[in-house]
């Protein structure tokens, strides 16, 4: 797995969308893979919550014939927590403050999620040997 590419994707997303405060990646079973979170957040617990939340949402989508699950977003008075399925094997958590433009976040994550999925499942195109 290309750790550097994964890190760049996570940091890049935070730079790209105003209002993202934290991001984390976990396997679909809730085991944390990587976290770019503030000290006030417990990334392991967050990963487990996201896995449970997405699992419940996925079953809800299936039971109500809503098609393939895309994401769940929890809104609070101080911001939101978005859980995205990354392919079939992993998930990504994005926390945002109350200023975040959630539509812009969804647009920005669409491409990033695909690239992260390729990195995680090691299908990303090999870097040139002389690359950084």
């Amino acid at each position: 797995m290309d750790h550097e590419a994964l890190t760049l994707e996570m940091r890049g997303l935070r730079e790209q969308v105003a209002g993202i405060t934290d991001t984390a990646l976990a396997a679909a079973d809730g085991l944390l893979i990587a976290a770019d979170t503030a000290d006030s957040i417990d990334p392991e617990g967050l990963a487990a919550l996201a896995a449970a939340g997405l699992g419940l949402a996925r079953r809800t989508a299936a039971a109500t014939s809503r098609g393939a699950l895309r994401r769940t977003v929890t809104y609070g008075s101080h911001g939101c927590a978005a859980f995205y399925a990354v392919g079939d094997a992993a998930l990504m958590v994005v926390l945002g403050d109350e200023g975040i433009d959630v539509d812009q976040l969804h647009r920005a994550t669409r491409q990033a999620l695909h690239r992260i999925d390729l990195i995680l499942t090691e299908k990303a195109p090999e870097k040139a040997p002389e690359g950084v």
Binding site: L6, T7, A27, I33
Partner: peptide, 17 residues
Amino acid sequence: PPAPIVVRTPPGGVRQR
């Protein structure tokens, strides 16, 4: 420079479910 993000590979790797 920000502290590097620690990447942990789950045991058995990330596999398609």
